[in-house]
Write a protein that binds this DNA or RNA. Structure first.
Lengths: 351, 351
DNA sequence: ACAAATCGTGATATCGATATCACGATCTAT
DNA sequence: ATAGATCGTGATATCGATATCACGATTTGT
């Protein structure tokens, strides 16, 4: 077994000693910035590789008073929507020389707060945040005095005037519901989540607008708020819906995970999608769709959410941004598959 | 608009001044460790909240010569298998007071190397690594002199004697193939990835063992190595397979993503799964399965991979581990659904 | 009641890298 | 040829927190 000469990791001083120069010169070499005699540079580089020296980021960040780390905070990174955002953001960040710290809030405001404080403690250069909801407002406000720039993703928060990348939830919901109406559905339910989340509010609004545009009445009984936009939330809400006397013939769920739960609940009741109940939702599940093109969805360009948000943030960190907030709204695409019942022609099923 | 009194973030010195004590006393308060008069503590705590002070982790890490950050390095965190691992690991880490930095290598050895160096620079307390493959060996070796403890996840690397959490790929593959054989398949193909990856080697071995046990010949023509264990890899490999004269009646793919690609290729050729070609694979796709229980898989407890690996790592960091490496092998479960053709009874389709 | 132990607090040095200023050596311009 | 600019390098202070030692004040034991 080989043993290191020295137990601790080599420092810039060790390199300096080995190369016969001052630490300052080593610093110049590793930062490629200043004028160093080529000969000296070579000596230093040799010392660096022979010692396996890696500069200490902590010390660097401390003196420089800033790091090149971005924080990325999402409610759940196993959700394909968010994991795509992460991938997009990570890619752009890395290309720009930033490292990325990922945080999973599990839609828990306190956990979110803990992570935000963590990021402040780490002196992250900036944050990309898909907040838990409006209740995150206090968390984000606490960020301001620390001067950490951040960009909100997917969810807006009234009163928070930061940069923002989001989808067009209102119009997307309108389209989805209009599509159902076009298929002759009249009793269309909406499974949503806490109205604390801007996308949930917007989608509910789009739902109402679509009904109104078609001259259909809005029935509050048909809107059920699951505990969260997850399978469990969708499942529970749908069970409640189906237990009603006048059950809906179609359901629009606030996102893809809720739709999966919804479909489970429908099937467990012995009903069929789309024959008994049509289902549409926001956000695609790419893997599932490839295996079996089933779910009719309003697909958002999730990865692009991530890349654009990262770009906005990096611009701002670099001071390349205007003072004013920037708001990017990306359009969503209606992808018609089986679950809405469209392939059966324009025949209604509810009569 | 409110303006901060001071432009910079408050330091421990600012808190000390505000509370009328020395920085050392503030340090004692925020570390809850030492004896501080309750009265003093209260004053300090008041100063902390009023200033919104957050201790600087960089400085802390520098003096303490260690951080409470774990690095988590995976080939692709949009892959549901890895994203579950992440969730498990992140959960355990957080509970133990560790932050987590996530890195996506995109199965690129050089990118992996860059990330590892990053983690060393950050002085991460330890690393959880699902390596790209055996070619990661050099990367990992470079870690040793820095004394960064790490745990390998999912993939072993010959010659790297670290802690390791993996599934039983040999037996899992054996079971999957035996299942196909039990369904009377005789020409069973295997879509694999680079043999640089231990799981790919093991699964190939299990495949061979199952054939052997059944007295079936091993035909190298039926083993195709995709460029990667992704949809594209599975798609390309399967296209090649189906172009052969004696096409297989069943395909065992090295993982779930490859299976999705495989199925696409099969369908594009106008064939049906499982009637024309049966498909089985490693790793479940939970979301897809809930929507439509189709894929017959060998399901690994991915989240448990993450939790156990994190525990092993944290133990080691805390010095609570033995000197010897620990190797945890978790069993996989065969989940029979549609794609293998089992529901058609034991009727063969190939003759 | 008095020595000894304990308590609460502070002064100082340090972690590793870099910003800043300084300084001798070399180069440039006229 | 000589003043002035430029180059290459180093010395020193500093970033923010903490380890360590020190020291007066209080408590404890007998």
């Amino acid at each position: 077994m080989m043993r290191d000469v020295d137990g601790a990791a080599p420092t810039i001083r060790d390199v300096a000693r080995a190369a016969g120069v001052s630490p300052m010169t080593v610093s110049r070499v590793i930062n490629e910035s200043a004028r160093v005699r080529p000969e000296t540079r070579k000596q230093v580089e040799a010392a660096i590789t022979s010692l396996g020296y890696v500069p200490n980021n902590l010390a660097r960040g401390l003196t420089r008073q800033k790091t090149s780390t971005l924080g990325l905070i999402v409610p759940d990174f196993t959700d394909p929507f968010f994991s795509l955002i992460l991938r997009g953001a990570e890619d752009v960040a890395r290309r720009a020389g930033f490292g990325v710290i990922l945080c999973n809030t599990a839609s828990d405001v306190e956990r979110e707060d803990a992570y935000l404080e963590d990021m402040v403690a780490h002196r992250a250069a900036g944050l990309l945040i898909a907040p838990v909801g409006d209740r995150s407002r206090a968390n984000l406000r606490r960020l301001v005095p620390h001067r950490v720039p951040f960009v909100l993703i997917d969810r807006a928060i009234p009163g928070i005037e930061s940069d923002l990348v989001q989808g067009d939830s209102i119009d997307g919901a309108r389209q989805l519901v209009a599509h159902l109406i076009g298929l002759r559905h009249r009793r269309i339910a909406h499974v949503t989540e806490s109205q604390d989340v801007s996308t949930a509010r917007d989608r509910l609004r789009g739902y109402r607008e679509a009904l109104e545009a078609a001259g259909l009445p809005f029935d509050p009984e048909l809107v059920v708020e699951g505990k969260s936009a997850t399978m469990q939330g969708g499942y529970d809400a749908t069970q409640a819906l189906l237990a009603r006397e006048a059950a809906p013939t179609a359901i629009f769920t606030v996102n893809n995970l809720a739709a999966v739960g919804s479909i489970r609940a429908i099937r467990e009741r012995g009903l069929t999608v789309p024959d008994d109940v049509a289902v549409v939702c926001f956000d695609d599940i790419e893997l599932a769709a490839l295996l079996h093109p089933f779910l009719t969805v309003m697909a958002q360009p999730a990865e692009t959410f991530g890349t654009i948000a990262a770009q906005l943030l990096i611009d701002r960190i670099a001071g390349r941004a205007t003072e004013r907030r920037r708001r990017v709204v990306l359009p969503a695409d209606l992808i018609v598959r089986v679950s809405c019942g469209a392939e059966r022609g324009i025949q209604p099923n509810g009569g």
